[in-house]
């Protein structure tokens, strides 16, 4: 009991016994999962393991049928909607890069900045020097400074992925959920993204869902393997990839 209470007090994100079913199909089955502050965590698992559904639950898109989802030990995320949760400091990158294609790179970042998001706050918003510096910083981080006035639609696939990561940074989240960030990237871009994520994880927690085992090895962090809606194994990449259940369910095929 003590240990559980202890992990809870330390955790940034805490899921316990979470279940959700769609028309009888258990997408998530009593899943328990903890992320600590400043942690970079990788999640692997076969298709249909519930990775994306888990993110949906954390970000308020899907309500779990049962279970506890806590942020910073006290905030019950199951009672909040997407906007609330984003404002609490959880950012999410989608599987398919989702940026505002008819805005410039700069505008995309300006929209994402963690400022007053109300109707009147945005109506009368003026770009301050401070915000300008911040956007320029992020542009540097995601290597898009030279394309800042370009419409996002004209970016390459990899650049869109980075722009989206940049938007998440502008949001200044405490926890970042990243869904398949390197899908469709060239090898060089993949390596680059691993570096970027490690850099980001220095100041906040990051959870990465990926299929690319090479990429996860590059990250060199604790790995959680999901299957059929619950945790199959957890530990270092070598430990997890030698687990016979993981090999049978995921790697072996």
């Amino acid at each position: 009991m003590n240990t559980i209470a202890e992990t809870r007090t330390k955790s940034l994100l805490y899921l316990e016994n979470v279940s959700v079913a769609f028309d009888g199909f258990k997408a998530i089955n009593s899943l328990s999962f903890v992320v600590e502050p400043g942690e970079l965590r990788a999640i692997i698992g076969p298709n249909g393991a519930g990775k994306t559904t888990m993110m949906d639950i954390i970000t308020g898109k899907t309500r779990p049928d049962s279970g506890t989802v806590l942020f910073e030990d006290s905030i019950d995320l199951t009672k909040k909607d997407e906007a609330d949760i984003a404002q609490l400091g959880i950012g999410r990158k989608f599987q398919k890069p989702t940026v505002f294609e008819s805005h410039t790179v700069w505008d995309n970042l300006e929209l994402a900045l963690n400022r007053d998001r109300g109707v009147f706050g945005t109506l009368f918003y003026r770009l301050t020097a401070e915000d300008k510096t911040r956007i320029e910083e992020i542009l540097e981080t995601v290597r898009l400074t030279h394309r800042k006035d370009e419409y996002a639609a004209n970016l390459s696939h990899g650049q869109k992925q980075w722009l989206e990561i940049g938007m998440l940074l502008a949001q200044e989240p405490k926890l970042l959920l990243v869904d398949e960030p390197v899908a469709g990237m060239t090898d060089a871009e993949t390596v680059e993204t691993a570096i970027l994520l490690k850099e980001i994880a220095k100041t906040r927690s990051v959870v990465v869902v990926e299929h690319d085992m090479g990429f996860i090895r590059d990250l060199g962090v604790k790995v959680t393997c999901l299957a059929e809606g619950s945790v199959l194994a957890e530990g270092s990449i070598d430990f997890v990839s030698s687990d016979p259940k993981v090999i049978e369910n995921y790697l072996g095929r």
Binding site: F22, D23, F25, A27, T52, T53, D56, T62
Partner: peptide, 8 residues
């Protein structure tokens, strides 16, 4: 209604 992730 059909439910589930695919529909959403």
């Amino acid at each position: 209604a059909l439910k589930g992730r695919a529909v959403e």
